[in-house]
Each structure stands twice: as C-alpha cells, then as structure tokens.
Design a binder for these strands. Sequence first.
DNA 1: GTAATACCTATAGCGACTAGAGGTTCAAGT
DNA 2: ACTTGAACCTCTAGTCGCTATAGGTATTAC
Lengths: 159, 159
Amino acid sequence: MKKLSPALSTTEHYIGIGELARESGCKPETVRYYERIGLLPSAPRNEGNQRRYTASAIRRLTFIRHARDFGFSVEAVRELLKMADYPAMPCEEVDTLAKHHLAEVEARIARLTAVRDELQRMINQCAGGNIGQCHIIDVLSDHRLCEHPGPHGGADVLR
Amino acid sequence: MKKLSPALSTTEHYIGIGELARESGCKPETVRYYERIGLLPSAPRNEGNQRRYTASAIRRLTFIRHARDFGFSVEAVRELLKMADYPAMPCEEVDTLAKHHLAEVEARIARLTAVRDELQRMINQCAGGNIGQCHIIDVLSDHRLCEHPGPHGGADVLR
DNA sequence: GTAATACCTATAGCGACTAGAGGTTCAAGT
DNA sequence: ACTTGAACCTCTAGTCGCTATAGGTATTAC
C-alpha cells in the first residue's frame, strides 16, 4: 500500500500529473502552468512532493481545455469557471460572455475571408513569368491594386 | 541648411522615423524593431544620430506592412523581400509561398466556422435560467454535447 | 532662449504556452 | 536489495510580433 501524506485520504483514487494530462488532452507542463496562474487550485502532494489528482481535477481541466478549444481566452475561462462554481446564479453573464466571444469569432472570420479573397485574386492573376512581372509582388508593393481600400485585417489576422 | 553627416547626400530628400512611420502606416517603435530584426537595412544617421530615410525606405516598409496585413509571417515577408529584390528570377517560389499561405488562411476559416456554429448552437439553446441549467456551461463541461467529435480548432483559433 | 516635440538606447512585458537544464522519486524487473 | 528508466520536480528562458516604459539627447517652433 502506497504511503500517503496526511492531506491525502486513503479511500480516494489518486492519479499523477501525466495521467491527468492524458485524460484531459493536454501536457503536464500545461497543467503546472494552469496551476501557477491559478486556473487550477494547487494540487495536494504525496510524500515525494508529486502532485496527486482526483476525478474533480479531471473535470475542471477538461472544462478548461474545452473552453480554450472554443477560443475563449484564459481570462474568459477564469470567469466561466467562477460562474460554473455558483450554479444558483442567473446565467446572464455566461450568456453575455459567450455572445461577446461569438462576435469576435465572427469578426475574425470576416477579416480572414477578405484576406482569402484578395489572396486568391492575386494568385489567379499571376501568369507565372519572372518576379519582375509577378502580380503577387505587385499587389504587395501597391495597396491600390487591392479590391478593398482599408487594411486587410491587421497583421494579427493569423496566429 | 541642415548639416548632414558624410554618409548623407545633400541632393536627396530625407525624412525622419516619425514621418516614415506615418507614411507607411506603422509606429516608429515598429520601424526600429524591423531594423533590429533585419527586415529593414540599418538606416543612415544624421549628425545627431537620428535615422534618415528616403523614398526607397517608404516603399520597402509599405511592402512589409502590406504583406503583414495579409497575414504573412515576418519570416515569410523576409523571403518575399529577398525575392522582390531579384526581379529576373522566376516567380514560382512567390507563388508557392502565397498558395501555402492561402491554404493556412482557408484552414483557419474552416476551424473558426466550426467554432462559430457550435457557439451559436449553445447560445441558442440557453433558456436563460440559472447557471445550474445553463446549456453553455453544460456544453463546456462535456464535449459529448458538441456536434463535432474532434477538438474545435485548438486553443489558438483566435489571436 | 526656452519649451515642446521628436528622437535615441535598452529593457521588460504581453498571451499562452513550450522546451530545456539539472535534479528527485517512483515502479518494475532481476 | 538493486538497478534501470520513466515520470516527476523547480526554475528559467524562448516563442511571435510587436508595444511600452524609463531615462536620456536632438531638433524645431516660437
């Protein structure tokens, strides 16, 4: 029988950080990072100072990963976690947060779509000669050759 | 008449970093940053150690900003600049680079669209009671409530 | 001459991790 | 009981593309 530090009960089933990571679809480094920034509570340790987790940690981390997968920022996830902890509160704020995020996603799709169209246009018009005649380089050199007048999406349209 | 250091000709028209930035749609800090990482050549200085630029710098910086606006990475822009410097070379590589970028933009649009649909679905199904009954929290808690089986787009779907 | 503005360098910070160094603990096999 | 190898620990630095300070110097307008 494994010896447990006083904080750990002998009846519950504990797993290590590796298994937690596997269960919830991320890496051990990320789990430690989430603990460091306070998204996850600091885990109890065994006698050898290793983190031990229960099913509730799996649930919390899965929630975090899923919300991140939806593109919610870490700060938004922090809010969502707080809200999820109070099931009796009205879900208005959750709704607002989700709608705000949806609007951001839609705006990004719009910008990316404009960029895509312009890219397609300039690729299609490249006849395939040398760089001096290349329409792609032309368009990049001169914004007036673009369909749309304003900036295309800001430099941060990707990444 | 302004005194010029030996490297600066007296016949050409020079501008400072602020005007260059304004002309090309970015900030002086960004210009210095581009010089530091080698996207822009190190500019000649006047007697007071301030950078002086000519029209060619405006063109180069405008190219950079425009390509960045299209979402090309700094490394891709570096390649594009190299290519633009050799107008006699075939434009095949330019084409490849642009097509590769287009594919990335399209992939990102696809991921964002999937995220958007799922967000809309979960927002529509929220009846507006308390958090305990909130469909948004439910979906985030349990991936099985999603239409699509895989991850939605990775955590980096935005930003 | 003076005051406001523009410029200089160097360094640190953002978000959300990821990777590495250098060490400790655990679990399995002999 | 011993050894090996995997998993774990902390701490620090790196990624990308800027942006923002701090603390100084130069230029320009009045």
